[in-house]
Nucleic acid binder design. Structure first.
Lengths: 340, 340
DNA sequence: TTGAAAGCGGTACCAA
DNA sequence: TTGGTACCGCTTTCAA
């Protein structure tokens, strides 16, 4: 037996009628029960249970001028490095009764603009972004958005409101330095996206380049901007291209762990020993790589902590705490395992 | 220079004033521009651009009685098999201007009840659930929810509204049969969760058990209900426990790929050859396993297709199409690779 | 401690 | 093709 399609939720008014009070009293029981006498409260609570009343968020948001929503836009979800951040954020927010709206800008930048409008339409408490927005139209849109804008996984020079992340430039520089000084590789190549949409990868490349120019005057980079999304196959292609072009390369710094894993597999397939013949390092320290076959040297990023900090900014703001730091650096670690 | 915190968005009324029309006309330009004359439309559009007007979703939802929101509750985000489904769902919905609210019920069932209420408060167009809800209180809550409830990644006997997935029982049965008949293993064990929160894993076990009882009268299962979440380490522990208890086991069917990977690693560590000494199969066909070290025999699930189907149910419903199938079976494939 | 009335910013419905 | 009016369900403000 199908249930009626037009079934309506009971309203606060109906709860009030059943309990014999005014609807504002019902509202108080829900939002500040300490202002209501015990007797009244119990009457109201019983009416709420009897009717299975669930308040309508839209009405509350409209009336009070504040939603219980946080919006996040990340570049992609599947296989994403942002997962631990988003997961943690979602957990903390839900404890405060805040909902997380997730959108991904996998496709065009045009799309992203549409999506941004759709997110703004929700009048969220906070807007979490994984991509830097340099485009003027979007920046101006964001600058008048009226809620906390939090950029994550990077530390832009001038955050719109807040930034929680680390310096991808520094991380790129550090890993290159680590390979050069601590591991003594002298012919280091970079594999990843050098420009375009993924600014974070680009900054890692800049860090690599900066170190190289200071110490070796040589930049060996295979750019995936055109082809790839940074998947396993790109790592395969990248390793081959680099070794073709610069056969004496002794280490490859990949801008992502998945790329690095692809490169390691391909190296082994070619009969090369890792790290003896070719060293490979990654970025991100994704959950799996460490655990099976490949013990990848990588840059460990504290993704969960980023989520925690973001949540604290939003929730703290609600509670009236003053957020002093516009830019929170959660740092990173170079983790040496067996591929370098 | 910090922007003012109390900056207000312009309203439809303000757009109307600037354009010299009534606000309902602005609404029409936005929602059904074909009803408005070209001259008027252009005046209004110019006013919208000038003010940077973005309509407020809450007001629209309240007034029209329909939100532009779909809510999804999945058990966990990080490392999750649901990612491809959610990603795909999100992509399609956003093309229709629908936002996806994501919540995860990683913690207690108590929590899940709270979250369910919070989601219902949004009056979503659709509610997507990855966990079967057998608990009476929740069922009754869901049964009066007034929007499409779509259960995914399984095919319950009596879906609340819709189900999109496959039979975990059949899949468990098929894999066991495959190991037994096609691969000729005769001492097959099961590693996974046998009961409790994760009904899907439980159903796979039931499928395994059903086959075993029919063909061998023996059930060898290591239950992770108490200990584990199905991570790599659980796979390690599981393999050892099974081999201790039943040393002549020649194949282990793991209820998840990650578990299986852990088991393969541990087997190799113990000096066992896979599959010669011990065969191992997984479930899910997660992106990575195939690509590096381990070519895992597994059950491939069409996660993206589930996302597509779910989106179509919701969007199709909006467009008035009639959804005939309450239960959509997307099937699964047994993929034999080198671990069996 | 409780209540009445006036909105919040849109949309539905009917009229012009 | 356009506009007026009455809401949607809740919170705010002020009064009792």
């Amino acid at each position: 037996m199908p249930r009626p399609i037009d079934e309506r939720w009971s309203t606060m008014k109906e709860v009030a009628n059943l309990a014999g009070v005014a609807k504002i009293t019902v509202s108080r029981v829900l939002r500040s029960p300490e202002l209501v006498s015990k007797t009244t409260r119990e009457k109201v609570e019983s009416a709420i249970n009897k009717l299975g009343y669930v308040p309508e968020a839209a009405a509350g948001a409209l009336s009070s001028g504040r939603s219980q929503i946080v919006a996040a836009n990340i570049s992609t979800l599947s296989g994403s490095i942002f997962l631990s951040t988003i997961n943690q954020l979602s957990n903390i927010l839900s404890k405060h009764g805040i909902q997380l709206i997730l959108s991904n800008s996998e496709y065009s930048e045009e799309m992203e603009f549409q999506q941004l409008s759709a997110l703004i339409a929700q009048r969220p408490l906070g807007l979490v972004l994984s991509n830097a927005f340099h485009n003027t139209k979007r920046r101006s849109m964001l600058s008048r958005i009226g809620c906390k804008v939090i950029e994550i996984w990077d530390l832009p020079e001038n955050p719109i409101d807040y930034a929680v992340g680390f310096s991808n430039f520094d991380a790129g520089y550090s890993m290159t330095q680590f390979l050069f000084k601590d591991c003594c590789y002298k012919k280091i190549a970079f594999l990843g996206t050098k420009q375009g949409f993924d600014r974070r990868s680009e900054m890692r490349f800049q860090g690599y380049k900066d170190f190289q120019l200071k110490h070796t005057s040589e930049v060996r980079a295979f750019d995936l901007t055109a082809s790839g999304k940074g998947n396993i196959h790109d790592g395969t292609v990248g390793l081959n291209s680099i070794l073709n072009k610069w056969p004496d390369t002794d280490a490859i710094f990949c801008s992502g762990d998945v790329l690095a894993i692809g490169a390691v597999c391909e190296a082994r397939r070619r009969g090369l020993r890792v790290p003896k013949d070719i060293a490979i390092s990654g970025f991100g320290d994704i959950e799996f790589s460490n655990e099976y076959g490949i013990e990848l040297t990588t840059v460990k990023v504290r993704g969960e902590e980023i989520g925690t900090r973001v949540a604290n900014i939003i929730v703290g703001d609600i509670e009236g705490a003053f957020n002093i730091n516009k830019s929170i650096d959660v740092g990173y670690d170079i983790v040496r395992r067996s591929t370098t």
